[in-house]
Nucleic acid binder design. Structure first.
Lengths: 343, 343
DNA sequence: GTTAGCACTCCTTTATATCGAGTGCTAAAT
DNA sequence: ATTTAGCACTCGATATAAAGGAGTGCTAAC
């Protein structure tokens, strides 16, 4: 329904505004070499595009800026898959040649690199521990009253939690308990741990362990480890350099929201797999009204594992960021699969 | 060398400026009930105080604000130990009645509470793991190539690191190794672990373990766990509400510096035990020129363990924050001692 | 259908005046 | 010898006006 000329003009306006952060006027447009019509023609087209809801004015006699609907259209229909800079490719590859084995460190480093590459804020939702399979449970008594339970997963993730020992429990009891748990629970995904314990292990335990009841409740409580994925951030302060955030109160709202990990977690988590773009109010959070969030998922083998996100102003370099995220999430998946899939 | 009247005037000026963030003039001072002289007299005294370096003007005809030297004098000589609000006392106590056992969580929660109570940024330097004593080492093989080493300390802190297994190593070898390590190293402070391994354990290991060399290097590398204390933050964005940080570039510098954990670590770490106040340039970091940092140390039993810090503008409520930190660090020490000293 | 021309809008910048809180200094009062 | 009243002066903050410029919408000519 848009003519080719309108499409061209619209695209040039968006590209120009993304670069300059300044409203784009008809005169400056007419000077671009890809545009051959007079400023008056452009003005007419711009008026139409505004009527259609793709463009806005900041005041009656200003140039045009893209509206949210405009960005949405731009992202959905006008984005040509951009070839990545070799410089970017190298930066990304560089992480994966560093010999890091811990999943968490790889992920943290990813957030850092992505923020440096984009100058936006990078948020990486860590590996979904809940889907990891139990490799080993260990219990280390610290003194007569407390012990520490350690859970190791097949991806090398370690969770630990302190708990109270019932009075008078014996170290041989603990040993027995640990053996039984490992025997019965190895290979079980963490998210099913609780259920399995009640269904399959409780009975066996009761037969073998003295002072079973008090011990059991302590332990079960402990195994309810919050298996929420962790968030990793990079470039939290990058937003401060964006001209749209010169207003201190806007910045404060945004940064406060970023610090609030639970909210952030929900916002990142609920994105489906693949690349996803949320523009301005689509984020459903007033602090993010002037922001866009681009997410990509990564995986180990066939399991969807986590999410990478870039948070920038709505006036974001969509094309570049999307290419970067596609490339990055893919490489990350490959590397992680290689590292941990080798059963 | 300062007369009583100068002292009085100076104190009132500092208190007023801390409250209002506005330069204090002679007229408004003369209206305070604790001050009985005319504005002209006050002007003379203020001129003297300025000559002595305790006060400054923001421009030729402005009121006075305290200089850094002034704040220093104020902190060193004019601070009356303020009684804490019962509201504050209760807030602090509330953390310690929550049944949290993990050291890290207590510490994280502390940072949060302190930032809420002060409206400044709270930074807590976590327990000094390096002084913790080894409770147990465990090694969990994940697959043929990698294993994960887990170190538990007497305070319940858990460190873990992945490492590569030499090809062809046997699970009985690993078991032997772990047994020897635990036998010889239990009770050794983490910071001495490396030395001990070379001096006392290497020989024994060589006798018992096949494929010793490759295993050993892998493991030793692994035990060089970065035992740097972790930093915990609360209220990172609180600075944005302070009028002195209305300037975006100042904020950006400060927040970027806060994000940069290594620098922050050094700044917090090098404070001696007890309460410490660093004002403005004393911090030795240009991003903190308009900030003051108040630190207090906490401990488990007799060991100095960590540091709590409050970062605010130089125009900070020194009296209140110092009282709060004294009280808090003391309570924290008591609680931690109770929790972990019960050998 | 396109474009040149023009009046109009509104932000930005610059200049100018005014106000007021504050100072330093001098001279009178205590 | 202090203290204080008085006064000229400074300078930031605020308001107002004027000029400039980038941009628009509309009309009429191409």
């Amino acid at each position: 329904m848009l003519t080719d000329r309108q499409l061209l003009i619209f695209q040039v306006i968006v590209d120009d505004f993304i670069r300059s952060a300044q409203p784009v006027g008809s005169r400056s447009l007419s000077k671009k070499e890809e545009i051959q019509f007079s400023s008056a023609t452009i003005r007419n087209e711009m008026a139409d595009l505004e009527e259609l809801g793709f463009l806005e004015k900041t005041h009656t006699s200003s140039g045009r800026i893209p509206s949210e609907k405009g960005y949405r259209f731009y992202v959905d229909h006008l984005l040509s898959p951009q070839k990545l800079d070799t410089k970017d490719v190298n930066s990304v590859r560089s992480i994966f040649t560093e010999r890091i084995y811990e999943l968490e460190k790889i992920v943290q480093r990813s957030a850092q690199i992505l923020s440096e590459l984009t100058n936006y804020t990078a948020i990486v939702l860590g590996p979904a521990v809940r889907e990891n399979k139990l490799k080993k449970i260990q219990i280390v008594p610290l003194n007569d009253e407390t012990a520490i339970a350690i859970i190791v997963t097949d991806t090398g993730h370690v969770e630990n939690k302190m708990f109270h020992l019932p009075i008078g429990i014996d170290s041989s009891d603990i040993e027995k308990l640990v053996n039984i748990l490992n025997e019965r629970l190895t290979g079980v995904p963490l998210e099913e741990l609780n259920g399995k314990i009640y269904k399959e292990v409780a009975l066996v335990l009761r037969q073998h362990i003295r002072s079973y009841d008090s011990m059991f409740s302590s332990l079960v409580e402990t195994l309810k480890i919050p298996t929420n994925e962790k968030l990793f951030f990079g470039g939290k302060t990058n937003m401060l350099s964006q001209p749209e955030f010169h207003d201190i109160s806007k910045v404060k709202n945004l940064l406060t929201m970023i610090e609030h990990e639970e909210d952030m977690y929900d916002i990142i988590r609920k994105n489906p797999s693949g690349i996803n773009v949320k523009i301005g109010k689509e984020n459903g959070n007033s602090a993010m009204d002037d922001c866009s969030l681009i997410t990509a998922t990564y995986s180990i083998g066939t399991e969807q594992l986590g999410t990478i996100a870039i948070l920038g102003p709505t006036r974001m370099e969509y094309s570049r960021v999307i290419s970067l995220l596609k490339f990055f999430s893919n490489d990350l998946s490959v590397v992680l699969t290689k590292l941990y899939q080798s059963k």
